[in-house]
Amino acid sequence: MKKSIIFIALFYCSLVFAFAQEDPYLTMMQQSIAQLDKNASVADFQVSANQFERAATVKTEEWLPNYWAAYCYAMMSYMAENIDTKDQYADQAEKFFKKIEASQQENDEVWVMKAYIAQAKLAADPMSRWQSQGGIFQSALEKAKKLNTQNPRIYLLRGQNLLNTPESFGGGKASACPLFLQADEKFSNFKPVSSIHPDWGRGYMEDILKECK
């Protein structure tokens, strides 16, 4: 009896220690990132964005919380209904992005994020923005490619952009699919730096590839 009490108590203690030793930042980030794939609505992404924002206020020296917060707001912009709300979310994404842009000039993922936000703005009003935001989108991806040709998201975003471009402007499925195939190949070789580094787009990739086949 005594032995088992001690045993249980010890086990409990070890758990507490294990919990205490784990980096709460890492745990929080991992949980929040794992949640992203399950998010289905603007409200879901708002909850995630809030988590990353909280992480960002504590870990001011890290770029990842701001990066992921920007990602969430960009997603919300794509999902939102009307142009004003889309813009509001895209502007918020940009706000988080601006905090890391200057210090992460050599980071290809940050350039991809810049393109992703530009694409969100473009999607809100393509007719009047294809020139301005389209330009930012293209040049940001060129920068990213210079830094790392193996980043699959470069090809994914290019493909996505072409898919939404009218055929008469050189877009459409026929020109987008080769890029998706390229992205797919890069994805299979892609290993994120850590469990909390960018590794998004795989799910969308698989869905879209089905359409290409």
Partner: peptide, 10 residues
Amino acid sequence: GANVFLKNTF
């Protein structure tokens, strides 16, 4: 969807 948190903590 408001973010409520204790300042400078997770």
